[in-house]
Design a protein around this nucleic acid. Structure first.
Length: 657
RNA sequence: GCCCGAAUAGCUCAGCUGGUCAGAGCAACCGCCUUGUAAGCGGUAGGUCGUCGGUUCGAAUCCGACUUCGGGCUCCA
């Protein structure tokens, strides 16, 4: 009888023979592809030690998918090096929904190359190559990987610095000893190897479904100063069905693309003549924009904000005072020279609001003083980042600045956060988490003292935590003048968008020498809190369009109802109904075109109009109308007064239908 | 800004390797027709093929630059 060890398997204690591997424990469950021993993910081949606490890791769990994707990335790298032996390896970590691997190759990959790489990968998967872990010393690793310059660089970075050095790098080199994974064919021949922390799937055969998605360039270790590598993105899933679901989700996202819907629904466009990132809103998009602005303006007033207005350009000095020019100049359009001065397009509204604050003496009795406007700002976004309405060069922020005493800051942040969340809910967005963006102590792009940052960050953190929402750290993500909390909103298909931001700022009040007179007669410096509720009107419209897939709730819908006659003779009847609806402010049209009724329904459906009001002889006889809704359902013979009431009610309550 | 890809009628797209290749559907316009929940029929008009150069006897097609868009990197509301 061999020696026995005691281990804990999935919570219950067991006695097994020495030399037992994790694979032995879970041999009857093919979905288990790795294990967690004492909290650390390990290969199934790991030999267990006495006292180990072992949990199975299923391929469809979060960790399991990461391992699957990481292993698939290895298979891809192997395929690439078999097809392009001169390709040098970068890093290849799992990412959200997939993986990538970076390669240094002389010629960029083409879509055809992807096909051949994918084919080669399928061969490797079929071959059932084992992933075999092999610890190596640093020196041995250097010797083995002498022809892989990027890997050598990673070996040098091993330890705590690896992840900081390059996102994903810790997937290659962990904090402990280095390991190399050998891909071994069933006959024992070494097929390929890569420096890797692991763990991996037992064999390539454990990859049920994968697909290469696209190729792109990426800077080595994420810095513009470094050479660009060719990055191939792929995805891998625990089953063919899961892969198909994922591809379907991508297709759904494409159907919802606001750039496409904006064109189809005649909401907005991006004329080349204007330049990149400068959208125009068409009448229907204008309705959407105006409804939003009207509502948001009203809500600001209700929450104690005062509406102000400021110009789009200013002399250079203002942005020097604010600190924008020294710290933010590359994000601004270059200046216009006139009358001996340099004028800049406004990139942020805060300096102007500061001038309003400073226009006369302020009393502590006035605080919190809340200034708000739809401020148009222009930012010189780099040409490669402009994207539809979500990343533009000219935008309107629903921007406010609250000036408060030090003591009032936390309450005001709480107030702003509640206000913002309420607004988002009103627009049908009710799934979100918070992100706390702090400064990077290593960087010199942040101004102010350590203590100021410390206090500001702590204040935001406390309010964020107290909100009960998930609070995710975002180190280094702060604005140069202060830390911020942002609300990340998840849309109808689960994507998250950064919308609202609340930023605490101790710096600008000092730079502008803002002050108020306190109760004791002393002069004190206020704290300033920046807040954009939707971030920008443009981005918000883009996000809303995708969230609703263009089928806006009635209160926002550019056309809320359309009258569709069965025959021409029913047009006057519908016109009378439309007039009644217009008395209640409903945006209604009657389709009196030459099209047949069926075609009119199709058109209205494609325009995603919430209420189709159909009338023929039957309806006219009963002083009624028949509803067709966007989902294709219908409600016939509704008395006209009831019909009007239903539509008016839906708009008033801002519900979705 | 960097890398790769793309740009043909208002929209979606054909047009392979340079020589009747300037086309289709939808939309628009004009007629005719139209009584029950996603496309009635016929006709008309519309593009110097993103722009500017180049190669060529000849360029939508090949080359270069620029503009704009897409996917990434970096950055960001």
């Amino acid at each position: 009888m061999s020696e026995q060890i005691r281990i804990v398997v999935a919570g219950s204690e067991r006695q097994v023979g020495a030399g037992t591997t994790a694979a032995d424990l879970f041999a009857d469950d093919p979905t288990v592809i790795a294990a967690r021993v004492g909290g650390t993910l390990v290969d199934l081949a790991r030999v267990l030690a006495d006292g180990d606490d072992v949990e199975p890791v299923a391929i469809d769990s979060r960790d399991g998918r990461d391992i699957l994707r990481h292993s698939t990335a290895h298979v891809m790298a192997q395929a690439v090096q078999e097809l392009y032996p001169e390709a040098k390896l970068g890093i290849g970590p799992p990412v959200e929904n997939g993986f990538y691997y970076d390669f240094d190759v002389a010629e960029p990959f083409t879509p055809d190359d992807l096909k051949s790489i994918e084919k080669k990968m399928q061969q490797i998967v079929k071959e059932r190559q084992s992933f075999v872990r092999r610890p190596v010393s640093d020196d041995d690793a250097r010797a083995e990987l002498a022809s892989e310059p990027y890997k050598l660089e990673l070996i040098g970075l091993k330890g705590g610095g690896a992840e900081a050095a390059a996102e994903g790098a810790s997937a290659e080199v962990g904090a402990g000893e280095l390991t190399i994974y050998d891909n071994v064919r069933p006959d024992g021949e070494l097929a390929w190897k890569d420096l890797c922390r692991g763990p991996h799937l037992p064999t390539t055969r454990n990859i049920p479904a994968f697909k290469l998605m696209r190729v792109a360039a990426a800077y080595w270790r994420g810095s513009e100063k470094n050479p660009q590598l060719q990055r191939i993105y792929g995805t891998a899933w625990e089953s063919r069905e899961a892969l198909k679901d994922y591809l379907d989700r991508l297709a759904e996202a494409e159907r919802r693309d606001h750039r496409k819907l904006g064109r189809e629904l005649d909401l907005f466009s991006f004329p080349d003549e204007l330049g990149s990132g400068l959208p125009v809103f068409h009448p229907k998009g204008g309705v959407l924009k105006r409804e939003m602005e009207d509502y948001v303006r009203r809500r600001h007033l209700e929450e104690g904000f005062q509406y102000v207005g400021t110009p789009h350009i200013t002399k250079q000095g203002l942005f020097e005072t604010s600190g924008h020019l020294p710290y933010y100049a590359e994000g601004m359009f270059p200046p216009m020279e006139l009358e001996g001065s340099s004028y800049y397009l406004k990139a942020m509204n805060c300096p102007m609001h500061n001038l309003i604050y400073r226009s006369r003496g302020r009393s502590y009795r006035e605080l919190p003083l809340r200034l708000f406007e739809f401020g148009s700002v222009y930012r010189y976004e780099k040409s490669g980042v402009v994207h539809g309405l979500t990343r533009v060069r000219g935008m309107t922020q629903d921007d406010s600045h609250s000036y408060v005493t030090q003591e009032q800051a936390a309450d005001e942040i709480r107030h702003l956060l509640n206000f913002v969340l309420g607004l988002l809910k009103d627009f049908g967005l009710d799934d979100y988490y918070l992100e706390l963006s702090t400064r990077d102590p290593e960087s010199d792009k942040f101004i102010g003292t350590d203590e100021q940052w410390e206090v500001a960050t702590r204040t935001l953190e406390e309010v964020g935590k107290a909100s009960g929402l998930e609070l995710v750290p975002d180190p280094g993500g702060a604005a140069y003048y202060g830390p911020k909390i942002s609300v990340q909103t998840r849309d109808a298909i689960g994507r998250s968008w950064q919308m609202s931001t609340i930023q605490l700022d101790f710096n600008q009040p000092a730079r502008f020498e803002l002050e108020y007179q306190a109760a004791d007669g002393s002069r004190q410096q206020p704290v300033m809190i920046h807040s954009a509720k939707f971030g920008s009107i443009e981005r918000f419209i883009g996000v809303l369009t995708e969230h609703y897939a263009g089928a806006f709730p009635p209160w926002l819908a550019p056309v809320q109802a359309v009258g569709i006659p069965i025959a021409d003779e029913h047009v006057p009847y519908l016109e009378r109904l439309a007039a009644k609806l217009r008395e209640h402010g409903i945006r209604v049209e009657v389709d009196d075109s030459d099209d047949r009724m069926q075609k009119k329904i199709r058109n209205a459906q494609k325009q995603k109009i919430p209420f189709m009001l159909i009338a023929g002889d039957d309806d006219v006889a009963k002083d009624a109308v028949s509803f067709r809704y966007r989902d294709g359902s219908q409600k016939n013979g509704v008395p006209v007064d009831d019909a009007v009431a239903e539509i008016v009610d839906a708009v008033k309550r801002r519900i979705q239908v």
